[in-house]
Amino acid sequence: MSAVRISLEDVRHVAKLARLSLDEQEIETMRKQLDSILDYMASLEQLDLAAVEPTFYSVAMQAPLRTDVIQPSLRRDEALRAAPMEKAGAFAVPKVMDGEG
C-alpha cells in the first residue's frame, strides 16, 4: 500500500480555503477519495519534465485588446434582480470589516 498522500488536517485546511463547510464524516470520506485520486496521479512523478514548458493555453493565441469606449451597463433592477438580499440599490451581506478575507 502506498503512503498517505493527504491528511485530515490538509482536508480541513483546503475546505476552509474553498469555503466549504464539511462535517467530520464528509472530511473522512473526502480524505479517502482524494487520497486514491492523488495516488493515481502519482504516475506523473515518473516523468522527467525539466526541459518541458507548460501549456497553459492549448491553442496559440494572444489577448485581443478592446478599444477604450463605454458600452451600456445593465439596468440596476436587472443587476440586482437575482440578489438574495438587496438594500438601497446595493447587494447586502452579513457585516464584515475591511481587510477580513
Binding site: A15, K16, A18, R19, L20, S21, L22, A82, A83, P84, M85, F91, V93, P94, K95, V96, E100
Partner: peptide, 24 residues
C-alpha cells in the same frame, strides 16, 4: 457562487459561515 449577487443563500453566523454553509 457565494450568495452575494445571485444564487442560493444559507445564512450562517457571519459572512465566512454564510459562504461555507451556502456552498456546502
Amino acid at each position: 457562487f457565494d450568495s452575494v449577487r445571485y444564487g442560493l443563500r444559507v445564512l450562517g453566523e457571519d459572512l465566512f459561515d454564510t459562504y461555507a454553509k451556502t456552498r456546502a
